[in-house]
Design a protein around this nucleic acid. Structure first.
Length: 744
RNA sequence: GCGCGAUUAGCUCAGUUGGUAGAGCAACUCUUUUACACAGAGAAGGUCGCAGGUUCAAGUCCUGCAUCGCGCACCA
C-alpha cells in the first residue's frame, strides 16, 4: 500500500534534514526578490499578480550579539506577513539589515579589549578601535544572517543594508545638512544626560529609572543663612547659586531678592533667593537649593532668573571643588563627607529615608549625571515652513498617527492602545540630544576652523573653503540613522535609486517590539515626515516582550536565554514559529516554554503522517478533475471553506495568533481526527463513487490546508507541497508553494 | 500624580463585532494487527479578581474597588 509514496513519509518528520535544503531552494528561486516574481499572463485572470507593492523593512538587529527569542518572534511574525502578502499576489519586498548600535557595540568591544589586553580605547586610538569594532561587527553580522535563514525569513538578501555602510552614511550626512540648514539641528550649551560609565551623553529616552531608597537630608547651608533646604544630593549644593521658594509662600516672602554668602564644605558659595512657581511649597521645607549645572529643572529655572551656572562635578562623576575631604572624590564619597561636615557644624536638622528614582543609562547601567555641555540637538518645538505653513517636528509627529482625536493621521497603530502612549510621550518631548562622545558611529558632518563652522555633506574643499578645517569629534545617536531606515534602504538620497524604489515607500507595515516605540518608531516618523514629506509606513504592528517560563525578562546576564537555534535544532523552525505566534496577541508579553515548542513539533508530525495517509489512500486514483461529491464530502468542503474564509479575515486583520490556532485546531481535530477517520470506510470500500469522492476530498483538504499553513510553517508545507499530485490546481506543479495563490 | 494593561481549568495563556467558555502542559481511565503511541477514544477540571449596573442575554459593555505589571511625569 505504501509502495508508491516517498520513502521519507515512512519515518517521523525530520526538520533537520529538510529545512536548510528548502531554504536553499527558495533562495535559488529568486522569489525573495520582488523583481523576480513571475508576473501573471497578460489578459488572464492573473494579469495583476505580483504587480502591486507590499513592503516592509526588517528592524535591523544590533550587531552586538546573537539572535534571542525576541528576535525570533519578530522574524516569525514578519515572515508570516510577508509570505501571506506574497501568496496573496503582492510584489513583496522585505528588506533585511543590521544596526551598528553605536554605544552598545563600542562598549562591548572596549570591554573585551580591556579584559584581554588591558588596554583602553585611548591606548588604541580612534582608527585602531574602529578597525577592531569593524571585525567584531562583521562576525556578529554573519552569525545573525545564519540565524535569520534558520528561522526561514524570506528577506531579499540582494538589498541587504547596514546602518553604518556607505549608502546609509550619505543618507545621514544629507539628512543632517538639511536639518542644519533649516535651523532644526543646533549646537547648544545645555544640561545634558551624561553617562560617566560610557563617557558620553545620552538622550532622555536612553534613561532607565530605577526606584531606590535614598536619604533626604534637611539642613542649612550655614549658620548665617536662615533658610533650611532638603536634598538627597548634598554634594551638588557646592554648585548652588540660588534658593528658590514659591512666590506665594509667606514663610519666605521677606527673603526673596536677598543674597547670601557662605562657605559650604570648603567651597565659597553665593546664593540669591528667588521666587518661582515651579517650587512646590508642600515639599520638604518649601525652599529649594538651585543647582543650575547639575539638574535639568534647576537649569531651566536658572534660565528664567538669569542665574550663574557653576559646574562642580566632572565627567568622571568626581568633585571639582570643595574641602580636601570632598575635592576629587567620587560623588557618593563626597556626599558622606559632606554629611559628616554638616553634622560637625550642627547644620543638619533631619535625615529621612525616601524612595527615589535614579536615572541610569540604558546601555551601560551607569548612573546618569546631569552636566552642562556643548552638544548637538534636534529642535522639536521650533517652527519651520512646510508647504506654506508654520509647523514643528512635534506637529508632524502628532499629525502622522491616526487616533480618535486625529482621524486624518495616516498611520494606524496595532494594538490601538499604543497610540495613547505615543501621544503622551510627544507631549513631554524635549529637544533630542544627538551627539555622542564615542567613536563608533556616523561622525557629525560639521567642521570647525577658529570661530567658523561648516556643515556639509562633504568635507570643506581646500580650494574653495581653505585648509585647516577640523571635523567635530562626536558621532551621532544610533537612532538618528535608524530613523532614516525606511527610505535610506530604498535608495534615498540618490534620486535615481530612490525613484526606482518609489512604489515601496511609504512601506506597507512596520512590525517591531513595543519597547522601541519611542526610540525607533517615533524617530522614523519624525525623519520621514520631515525629509520625504510622507509617513514611513501605513501601519505599525507592535509585538511584546518574550519572557522565560517564569516571567523573567530574557537577558544574557540572567542566564535564562532559551536559544532559538537550540530549539530549531531540536524541534524545527516551523515548531518554534508556531510556539511563538499562537495565542500571542499584538503588544502582549509572552512566555516561551520548551513544552509549547515541542507540542508544535508533534503537530508537524501530525501533518506529516496525515499526508502519508492521504497519499497512500489516493494512490493510483485520477483526481485531476473534481468528481461529483457525496453529500458528506460537500459538507466537508463547505466547512473547510468557512474555516479558510475565517482565517483569511484574521490574516487581513493581523490576527495571526488566532489564524494559527484555528488552522491547528482544524487540521488536527477536524481533518485528522474526524474526516480522515470517517474516510477510511469509503476509501477502502467497494462503492466506486463514494471512494473517488472521499479521495478527492482528502486531497483537496490536504492541499488547501498545506497552502494556508505555509506562512506559519513554511518548511514542512513546502516539503509536502512538492509531493502532492496535481489536483484542480493548474499551477501547482509548476511553482513552489512560496508563490502559490493563497486562494483560488 | 497622570495614563495604560493584566486578573479565565493545577500551570502558561487564547477567547475578533455581547449569545451560558477553549488550547498547550500536568493529572485520570481505556486502546498497540494503527496514517501517526511524536497516537487515538473517553472522563475530569472554571460562581471567567471583587461589588454593582446596562441588556432578553456579559468573560465580552459601563461604574467603583482590590492585587500585579508597564509607560510618562515628579524625584528639592
Amino acid at each position: 500500500m505504501d509502495s508508491n509514496i516517498p520513502e521519507k513519509f515512512l519515518k517521523p518528520y525530520n526538520p533537520a534534514e529538510t529545512e536548510d535544503r528548502i531554504y536553499n531552494t527558495w533562495e535559488k528561486s529568486g522569489f525573495f526578490n520582488p523583481d523576480k516574481l513571475p508576473k501573471g499572463e497578460k489578459n488572464s485572470d492573473d494579469s495583476e499578480r505580483f504587480t502591486k507593492p507590499f513592503s516592509i523593512v526588517l528592524p535591523p538587529p544590533n550587531v552586538t550579539g546573537i539572535l534571542h527569542m525576541g528576535g525570533a518572534l519578530m522574524l516569525a511574525i514578519e515572515d508570516i506577513m510577508v509570505r501571506y502578502a506574497r501568496m496573496s499576489g503582492y510584489k513583496t519586498l522585505w528588506i533585511p539589515g543590521t544596526d551598528h548600535a553605536a554605544i552598545a557595540t563600542q562598549s562591548k568591544v572596549e570591554k573585551e579589549i580591556k579584559k584581554e589586553e588591558g588596554k583602553t580605547r585611548h591606548d588604541l586610538g580612534r582608527e585602531e578601535l574602529l578597525k577592531r569594532i569593524g571585525i567584531f561587527a562583521k562576525e556578529s553580522h554573519d552569525t545573525i544572517v545564519t540565524q535569520m535563514k534558520k528561522m526561514g525569513a524570506s528577506v531579499d538578501w540582494s538589498r541587504e543594508a547596514f546602518t553604518l555602510d556607505e549608502k546609509r552614511n550619505l543618507a545621514v550626512r544629507t539628512a543632517f545638512k538639511k536639518m542644519y540648514d533649516d535651523g532644526l539641528i543646533y549646537r547648544g550649551n545645555r544640561v545634558v544626560n551624561w553617562d560617566p560609565k560610557g563617557q558620553t551623553t545620552i538622550s532622555d529616552d536612553e534613561i532607565v529609572y530605577e526606584t531606590r531608597k535614598a536619604k533626604l537630608y534637611t539642613f542649612k547651608y550655614s549658620k548665617d543663612i536662615p533658610i533650611t533646604i532638603s536634598t538627597t544630593r548634598p554634594e551638588t549644593k557646592l554648585g548652588d547659586t540660588a534658593i528658590a521658594v514659591h512666590p506665594d509662600d509667606i514663610r519666605y516672602k521677606d527673603f526673596v531678592g536677598k543674597e547670601f554668602d557662605a562657605v559650604f564644605a570648603g567651597e565659597p558659595i553665593h546664593l540669591r533667593v528667588i521666587a518661582d512657581r515651579d517650587v512646590d511649597p508642600e515639599f520638604g521645607t518649601g525652599a529649594l537649593g538651585v543647582t543650575p549645572a547639575h539638574s535639568n529643572i534647576d537649569w531651566e529655572m536658572a534660565q528664567r532668573h538669569n542665574l550663574p551656572l557653576k559646574q562642580v562635578i566632572n565627567e568622571y562623576a568626581k568633585m571639582m571643588v570643595g574641602s580636601s575631604e570632598v575635592k576629587d572624590k567620587k560623588t557618593t564619597d563626597a556626599r558622606e563627607a559632606i554629611v559628616e561636615w554638616l553634622k560637625a557644624e550642627g547644620l543638619l536638622e533631619k535625615e529621612e529615608e525616601v524612595d527615589q528614582n535614579i536615572s541610569t543609562a540604558e546601555r551601560t547601567g551607569g548612573i546618569v549625571e546631569p552636566l552642562p555641555k556643548l552638544q548637538w540637538f534636534i529642535a522639536v518645538n521650533k517652527p519651520f515652513n512646510r508647504d506654506g505653513k508654520e509647523v514643528t517636528l512635534k506637529d508632524l509627529m502628532i499629525g502622522a498617527v491616526n487616533s480618535a482625536q486625529n482621524t486624518s493621521g495616516e498611520i494606524k497603530v496595532i494594538p490601538e492602545r499604543f497610540e495613547k502612549i505615543y501621544f503622551n510621550w510627544i507631549q513631554n518631548l524635549r529637544d533630542w540630544c544627538i551627539s555622542r562622545q564615542i567613536w563608533y558611529g556616523h561622525r557629525i558632518p560639521v567642521w570647525y576652523k577658529g570661530d567658523q563652522v561648516y556643515c556639509g555633506i562633504e568635507a570643506p574643499s581646500p580650494s574653495a573653503d581653505g585648509d585647516g578645517w577640523i571635523q567635530d569629534e562626536d558621532t551621532l545617536d544610533t537612532w538618528f540613522s535608524s530613523g532614516l531606515w525606511t527610505f535610506s534602504t530604498l535608495g534615498w538620497p540618490d534620486e535615481k535609486e530612490f525613484a526606482a524604489h518609489r512604489e515601496y515607500h511609504p512601506t506597507t507595515i512596520l512590525e517591531t517590539g513595543s519597547d522601541i516605540i519611542f526610540f525607533w518608531v517615533a524617530r522614523m516618523i519624525l525623519m520621514s515626515t520631515y525629509l520625504v514629506n510622507e509617513v514611513p509606513f501605513k501601519t505599525v504592528y507592535l509585538h511584546g516582550l518574550v519572557r522565560d517560563n517564569k516571567g523573567q525578562k530574557i537577558s544574557k546576564s540572567s542566564g535564562n536565554n532559551i536559544d532559538p537555534l537550540d530549539m530549531i535544532a531540536k524541534y524545527g523552525a516551523d515548531a518554534v514559529r508556531m510556539a511563538l505566534v499562537v495565542a500571542v496577541g499584538p503588544g502582549n508579553d509572552s512566555k516561551i516554554d520548551e513544552q509549547k515548542i515541542k507540542a508544535y513539533k508533534l503537530f508537524s508530525n501530525k501533518i506529516w503522517n496525515a499526508t502519508r495517509f492521504v497519499l497512500s489512500s489516493i494512490d493510483g486514483a485520477d483526481l485531476s478533475a473534481r468528481p461529483t461529491l457525496a453529500q458528506v464530502d460537500e459538507a466537508r468542503i463547505k466547512e473547510l471553506d468557512d474555516v479558510i474564509t475565517d482565517v483569511t479575515a484574521d490574516m487581513n486583520s493581523y490576527r495571526y495568533y488566532l489564524a494559527a490556532e484555528k488552522l491547528y485546531h482544524y487540521f488536527w481535530h477536524t481533518f485528522a481526527d474526524k474526516i480522515i477517520e470517517e474516510s477510511k470506510g469509503p476509501v477502502n470500500g467497494t462503492d466506486e463513487v463514494a471512494r473517488i469522492s472521499a479521495q478527492w476530498t482528502l486531497l483537496h483538504i490536504l492541499t488547501t490546508t498545506i497552502k494556508v499553513l505555509h506562512p506559519f510553517m513554511p518548511y514542512i508545507t513546502e516539503e509536502i507541497w512538492a509531493e502532492l499530485p496535481v489536483q484542480d490546481l493548474p499551477l501547482s506543479r509548476k511553482s513552489l508553494l512560496i508563490i502559490e495563490k493563497w486562494l483560488r
